[in-house]
């Protein structure tokens, strides 16, 4: 049994691996040179500059914040390289991935028509879907969150329903939305919307319910009501909660888009991954995963930054 599995794995992979060995070493050496060169570059900068104080401080900060991840990353890449370079490995090694995906990395914005476009376009297409779905979720989520945070009857009526619906996995909505919209594009957007909306609703409602009684009393004394109350008191007071909901929401929508696009098709990073799998382009999948991770990280940090700017003054009292 075990020998057949081994044989199969060997028979499927050795051809591409052996054919690219010269390229592999060529692509690998500059990368390792860069990795090795970075720390020494910091060290002299710390001691030689005329504004020694500032330079040394910058150098120290780089040393503290950049050095650990660089070391760990180099180690992990090394382990990956060693594990996957062995004959019979079912996954490509790091250098293998670099050489396989060279075209994709260097040309993120090529366009050969149809689905055959660069990774940049694929990611932008996914981001566009997320932008639509997430924006709708922000508007709907804040509105519903304010409703159930402000009115106890809405809370009692809607909260049990929301608590059940929010546990439904995003992809479970896809067949239903395909049936409803009869079109893949709005269906994908709907899946993003329905995924991102729950944390936004729940956090907004908690934020609204936690508006200090004092602020409400101030508003009542100056007779601040309706829309003006919403803008002047409710939104700023609940902003820290709302932004934590927005941050969870953006993360979830990016999680859902890849899965949704795998099923829906068209241009998009999710379908790119699925397409690569169908063509056995494992290196392309790995590159796409790295891009997906980086974009998700950037999205998360953007919302976090926005939240920090907006709520800078709300949190301290």
């Amino acid at each position: 049994m075990s020998s057949t599995i081994h044989l199969r794995a060997v028979s499927s992979k050795p051809t591409p691996e052996s054919s690219t060995t010269p390229l592999e070493s060529g692509a690998g050496s500059p990368a390792s040179q860069i990795a090795a060169a970075t720390p020494p570059e910091d060290a002299p900068a710390a001691s030689t500059g005329p504004e020694k104080n500032l330079a040394s401080r910058v150098g120290e900060a780089l040393l503290h914040h950049l050095l650990p991840p660089i070391i760990v990353l180099t180690l992990l890449l090394g382990i990956w390289e060693i594990l996957c370079s062995q004959p019979g490995s079912s996954l490509p090694s790091f250098t293998q991935v670099l050489s396989d995906t060279r075209e994709l990395i260097l040309n993120p914005f090529y366009n050969n028509g149809g689905n055959d476009v660069g990774l940049g376009w694929q990611i932008l297409a996914s981001l566009e879907r997320v932008a639509y779905g997430y924006s709708l979720a922000v508007i709907g989520g804040i509105a519903l969150g304010v409703l159930i945070g402000q009115f106890s009857w809405a809370m009692k009526g809607l909260d049990p329903i929301f608590q059940v619906l929010r546990t439904v996995p995003p992809l479970a909505w896809l067949p239903l939305s395909l049936a409803g919209f009869q079109d893949s594009h709005p269906s994908a957007i709907f899946v993003i919307f329905i995924t991102a909306i729950w944390p936004i609703i729940i956090n907004t409602s908690v934020g609204v319910r936690n508006i200090p009684e004092d602020y409400r009393n101030v508003a009542r004394v100056i007779r601040l009501k309706g829309v003006r109350y919403f803008w002047k008191i409710m939104l700023p007071a609940a902003a820290p909660y709302i932004f934590s909901g927005l941050r969870i929401g953006v993360g979830l929508s990016w999680l859902a888009i890849v899965a949704a696009e795998m099923l829906v098709g068209g241009v998009g990073i999710g379908f790119f991954i699925w397409d690569a799998w169908n063509s056995s382009l494992i290196s392309d999948i790995i590159l796409a995963l790295i891009y997906v991770g980086i974009v998700g990280f950037i999205l998360d940090r953007m919302v976090a930054y926005l939240g920090r700017v907006v709520t800078r003054s709300t949190s301290a009292s």
Binding site: D214, Y215, N217, V221, I222, R223, P236, S313, T314
Partner: peptide, 19 residues
């Protein structure tokens, strides 16, 4: 029968809006 600015309140913990 309702709050209003003709009876303004200075609250114990100031109740200024922090933002």
């Amino acid at each position: 029968n309702e709050p209003g600015p003709d009876r303004s309140v200075v609250f114990q913990n100031h109740s200024l809006l922090p933002w």
